[in-house]
């Protein structure tokens, strides 16, 4: 399904990214999007430990105070601060292209997802973090890697506008494939509607097997928790074509809302346990301000 690129990255959106730049700069020092201290000791500025000097070490790192006390050479160790990668999983399944129920406006989840990815990549570029985006539907697609800096950001935008939606949602398979790639530990941003047939439990199990810090951006239509449906319906899954006859009344909508809330709570709870973030991005509202709320309480850190 082709995507209207003119509508996704329109001038209003690009202007809102400028506002996001300000938000990103307010992120406190040491709190870059994916910045975190590496366990590897190196040439940083933050002292970490000492160890005995061995031949070949940089003599500039010898702790002369300890030399005076112990008459033995010790080498000062500093934390080596390095950027951690931002791995983005972008949902491109057919469900992302479906407009809201009962609404005539052409706003779909794909637009919001692409804008969210662009906004996050913009912040990452501001902090010279490295971003890689992997699309997925029923299988992972060919992604884009090494996005860092503004030049790369524009490359990312060009890549995003070429996306199209289609296929079934198999987030669990995409997460497993991501795990098999043994990527460097970092921030895992999943931009999806999380409508995997295995449910939130299956998604969380797959996420739990990964070492990354989760940042779950759930793209949701307005009234998704309580769809404006009623009566005798034959529901058709947009992705699979499967049909389900159902009589929808208030009681059924209550049960739907309960299941929907449990689904979201499962994702939110998992993100909290991993010190990650869970954010619901509503398609009916501007995306950038919603993404900016990720940084209102500080940095996103892996």
């Amino acid at each position: 399904m082709a995507i209207d690129t003119q509508r996704i990255f329109d001038p209003a959106f690009l202007r809102s990214l400028e506002a996001l730049r300000i938000v990103a700069r307010r992120v406190p020092a040491g709190g870059r999007l994916a910045e975190q201290p590496s366990k590897a000791r190196g040439a940083g500025v933050e002292f970490s430990d000492v160890r005995p000097y061995v031949q070949g070490d940089d003599i500039r790192a010898i702790d002369w105070n300890l030399w005076q006390r112990f008459e033995k050479a010790f080498l000062k160790l500093f934390l080596h601060e390095e950027d951690l990668p931002v791995h983005v999983l972008l949902d491109e399944s057919a469900s992302m292209a479906l407009p809201p129920l009962g609404r005539s406006e052409p706003r779909d989840k794909t637009t919001a997802a692409l804008q969210a990815v662009a906004a996050l990549a913009f912040v990452a570029a501001e902090h010279l973090d490295r971003v890689g985006v992997t699309p997925f539907a029923d299988a992972s697609g060919i992604g884009i890697r090494g996005i860092t800096g503004s030049a790369s950001f524009h490359r990312l935008l060009a890549w995003l506008v070429a996306r199209s939606a289609g296929g079934r949602t198999d987030l669990v398979a995409a997460l497993r494939e991501l795990g098999h790639r043994r990527l460097r530990r970092g921030l895992l941003v999943v931009v999806s509607d999380f409508l995997d047939p295995r449910g939130a439990g299956g998604v969380v199990d797959a996420l739990r097997a990964l070492p990354h810090t989760p940042c779950l951006l759930r793209i949701a239509h307005p009234h998704e928790a309580r769809p404006p449906l009623s009566g005798e319906l034959e529901l058709e899954d947009h992705e699979t074509g499967e049909r389900l006859p159902l009589f929808v009344d208030e009681a059924a909508l209550d049960r739907f809302a309960t299941a929907h809330a449990a689904h979201c709570d499962t994702l939110r709870a998992f993100a909290r346990t991993r010190r990650g973030r869970y954010l619901e991005i509503r398609t009916g509202e501007p995306v950038v301000p919603q993404v900016a709320t990720l940084f209102t309480h500080g940095a996103l850190s892996g």
């Binding site: 949602t169 409508l195 009566g231 034959e234 529901l235 058709e236 006859p245 159902l246």
Partner: peptide
């Protein structure tokens, strides 16, 4: 029955189980 295309039957299935 009126046919309605939805993005997923994930939550509707839980409704159908009760109904």
């Amino acid at each position: 029955m009126r046919r309605q295309v939805v993005d997923s039957l994930l939550f509707f299935r839980s409704v159908a189980l009760h109904a």
